[in-house]
């Protein structure tokens, strides 16, 4: 079986079929999954980190972790959600290592070049997210981008429910303020 023919077949196959093949140890199938899901994971990591190079590094780490844990994927049809959870956990591990989850952590705000309050700056969502504190940004992304409930965020981040709610409330208010240019949409 030639590799190009196999790759063609993999490209046409459904994700659950490709995931099932990958679980059985097929390296080409896993490569196809990376090809299909890279956009989703890279965007998520970019929203969480705000740094393109770091986001890509975390995204690669997420795929590596997924490859290591493939045997624990019980339902190949749920590959997307399972991979997203792994990616969020990778970011959380990094955030805990760097103590970014502390309530008073201002590291992102102080390190980010767009962080300085500048009401005249034309900000897009990326830049506005970069201005939030890491814990706020995490809660906002998980809530609005990943559509996780407050309870789910609380469970996956280990933050108290009250903190999650206040991060989302304060974060969305700040985002709205930063995104004045999008006022029509927001």
């Amino acid at each position: 079986m030639s590799s190009s023919w196999k790759r063609g077949r993999l490209t046409e196959a459904s994700e659950s079929a490709v995931a099932a093949l990958a679980v059985s140890g097929d390296a080409d199938a896993f490569e196809e999954l990376v090809r299909r899901r890279q956009g989703m994971i890279r965007r998520l990591m970019h929203q969480l980190c705000g740094d393109g190079a770091m986001a890509d590094d975390f995204a690669q780490e997420a795929f590596l972790k997924a490859w290591q844990k493939l045997s624990s994927l019980n339902s190949p049809g749920a590959f997307g959600g399972w991979l997203r959870r792994i990616a969020v956990n990778i970011f959380l591990q990094h955030a805990r290592r760097k103590s970014l989850m502390k309530e008073d952590s201002d590291e992102a705000a102080s390190n980010n070049p767009v962080a300085a309050e500048d009401s005249t700056a034309k900000l897009d969502l990326d830049d506005a997210l970069g201005k939030l504190k890491p814990a706020e940004r995490l809660c906002i992304v998980l809530s609005y981008s990943e559509r996780m409930s407050h309870g789910e965020i609380c469970l996956s981040t280990g933050l108290p429910l009250g903190t999650v709610k206040s991060h989302i409330s304060r974060g969305s208010a700040r985002l709205r303020r930063y995104l004045k240019d999008y006022e029509g949409d927001v």
């Binding site: 890279r42 969502l125 609005y144 981008s145 985002l175 949409d185």
Partner: peptide
């Protein structure tokens, strides 16, 4: 509005 904005963010 925020959900729409996040959904509209393009994937790389």
């Amino acid at each position: 509005g925020l959900h729409r904005l996040f959904d509209a963010m393009p994937e790389p």
